[in-house]
Write a protein that binds this DNA or RNA. Sequence first.
DNA 1: CCTTGTGAAATCTTTCACAGCT
DNA 2: AGCTGTGAAAGATTTCACAAGG
Lengths: 254, 254
Amino acid sequence: MATGRTHRPATRSRGIPEATVARLPLYLRALTALSERSVPTVSSEELAAAAGVNSAKLRKDFSYLGSYGTRGVGYDVEYLVYQISRELGLTQDWPVVIVGIGNLGAALANYGGFASRGFRVAALIDADPAMAGKPVAGIPVQHTDELEKIIEDNGVSIGVIATPAGAAQQVCERLVAAGVTSILNFAPTVLSVPDGVDVRKVDLSIELQILAFHEQRKAGEEAAAADGQVPPAVARKASADKGPDGDVPAVMPA
Amino acid sequence: MATGRTHRPATRSRGIPEATVARLPLYLRALTALSERSVPTVSSEELAAAAGVNSAKLRKDFSYLGSYGTRGVGYDVEYLVYQISRELGLTQDWPVVIVGIGNLGAALANYGGFASRGFRVAALIDADPAMAGKPVAGIPVQHTDELEKIIEDNGVSIGVIATPAGAAQQVCERLVAAGVTSILNFAPTVLSVPDGVDVRKVDLSIELQILAFHEQRKAGEEAAAADGQVPPAVARKASADKGPDGDVPAVMPA
DNA sequence: CCTTGTGAAATCTTTCACAGCT
DNA sequence: AGCTGTGAAAGATTTCACAAGG
């Protein structure tokens, strides 16, 4: 196995922080909306509000891409759309396969935003022979047997796994063996992949549990507030970020 | 009323870092699997591997919950399951409503992992009158007109938005006005919410764009590697770490 | 005036490495 | 001997605040 014990040599050439990368799509979406309304320029303050972040963060983020703004004026919308698209690699076509065409897989196949920006559903794959040939979202489902051939023929490097948890690791391994190097995993399981393969996961159950944690915390604070004289709900603020406070009274609800 | 009354006393008693909270569900899932196999205890090393994190991080995470392990032995699986469940607020019942019963909403309603752990789909809501009364996943869809009543009657504090982007903000406002304080948003839009309301978002398009960024970067490095003398099999290097919401399942070679 | 771009400070997160307990 | 729990170091991210430039 790989002996690359050396912690990442850190190719710092194009080092855009991961946190920044994760926000670029957000900015891009906001900018696209502005572009559709033919807004020519936008300030960091305005754009940040539209994207649900604060303006200092946005400016810092953009500073990693280069100096694309004009002091005293703001950013040229069209130009920024182009620069961010290029940075994200959206100026090229990304064929994607979806494996597992159950409820969720079908929903993903039907999701419009998929095709919108550089991504193209190259194939739908399912293990159920009864599904084979059936069109979903206008694309005929193919059997898992064809997986390797489909990946190769279409030059697919991004795979979406929407299978049951039990099948996910095996599907993952076949995708990777066939040449896929980026995986979006909707199955509620941890995937093991070789070095060099990126995995991102989307997990409903985890998100709900995180919300439950904060919900519980709020309930506890409320109870504590009833005791003291903490002012009731305050200012209305637009915020896309998660709860700021991390402070829970040691009150145990038995 | 005092204006400067500090919202948070300097007491750091129970402040679990957000990054830790986001990993607790992962640990819980791994522990549940161990529990089902009747494994009595587990070491931080084993559990970390199962959860796809490193053991130092796991031990640090657990240290915020308390000292639940035994030196020289490891952690008692059942006990940890209980402690983490309690910490996450999963020992209580969380009624949830799903708004927007299209492809995605239906997929979510059918998702088993939903009901499994403390969450219960209290109602499905859709704006289409034609949907009303139709059962999805065994639950009859109700019309949006009923939204406020449903929230109130069921004491719902967590809402899932699976509507088209255009409807999401309005639905969000109605949910919040009716008493919902945690929202899981699947619509590709930034939600504005009052202070004290938590929003988490799940966005296919954003995840794909982040993958595309790394995919593009890999392609660039490959080209650069071809210039040098890195053997093809090992030429790929990982960015390894993910952003705020993501983790990379690490592969632990023997 | 205006708003960007950015060093520096503050804060949060991960990792290291080992003392301390079983 | 083995493994946890944790200070302290290292690293990443956010925020501040202001100089620089339109």
